[in-house]
């Protein structure tokens, strides 16, 4: 019986060790060629981007990973600011869903913001940004939540009646299937009618990466 318990303990220890290794993020610049092949960045841009990553990831804890505090600090120069959108963007960057960003996650996500990235990639990323519950469609309630949160963050004041009115008109235009939600196809069509919805999806800085981080 004791031998059997020891065996189980040993098995669990091995299992935890495996899980731990699995959960650890690859740190550092492992293979710039692979990232350059799979993103819009060139090898030298990947290397320049890594310099930016090192700077951001060492702001609070120098562990070669970006946590949410460092992410906010880099964006707003303060970690105190409440931002629903910064939270959403961080969550979308965090494809491994472990609350920290490795360089690969950072580079792959920023690639979507490159001026040379396709409009389709940008439309898809922006759709996920608004699909708070990740259900594959944007609900009216999600839009209201974001409007209210972002207005509050910016100190803008609009009455509930005006907000409801704006959302009504938005759904009248976007929800062409009249099912009370905006799916990817409807989002795609809405963005094509209003390209300004993608204006924050392109970062001109990414064209000058090698100049910023030689």
């Amino acid at each position: 019986m004791v031998q059997c318990l020891d065996g189980v303990k040993h098995l669990l220890a091995v299992l935890f060790k495996c899980c731990d290794l699995e959960l650890k993020q690859p740190r550092g610049l492992e293979d710039p060629q692979v990232l350059a092949r799979e993103t819009v960045f060139s090898v030298s841009e990947v290397e320049a981007l890594y310099e930016l990553f090192k700077k951001i990831s060492s702001a609070v804890i120098d562990d070669g990973l970006i946590n949410k505090e460092e992410f906010q600090l880099a964006l707003f120069k303060t970690s105190k600011k409440e931002s629903l959108f910064a939270d959403r963007v961080f969550d979308l960057f965090d494809t491994k869903h472990n609350g920290i960003l490795g360089f690969e996650e950072f580079a792959r996500a920023l690639s979507v913001f490159h001026p040379n990235a396709s409009v389709e990639e940008k439309i898809d990323f922006s759709f996920q940004l608004y699909d708070l519950k990740q259900q594959g469609f944007i609900e009216r309630q999600e839009v209201k939540q974001m409007v209210v949160a972002t207005l509050a963050e910016s100190g803008m004041n609009l009455s509930d009646e005006i907000i409801e009115n704006i959302i009504d008109k938005t759904f009248e235009e976007a929800d062409t299937k009249h099912d009370g939600k905006i799916d990817r196809e409807e989002w795609h069509n809405l963005v094509l009618r209003h390209p300004s919805l993608l204006k924050n999806m392109t970062l001109q800085y990414l064209n000058a990466l090698r100049l910023c981080f030689p």
Partner: peptide, 29 residues
């Protein structure tokens, strides 16, 4: 502001304006 131009925006344009989400902060000192 509840001015006319704000009310004529769609909800996503309004969110974009109010959120001031811009990743260029990454590149600025």
């Amino acid at each position: 502001p509840g001015d006319k131009s704000t009310r004529q925006m769609n909800a996503f344009q309004l969110i974009g304006m109010a959120s001031s989400l811009d990743l260029s902060g990454f590149f600025e000192e």
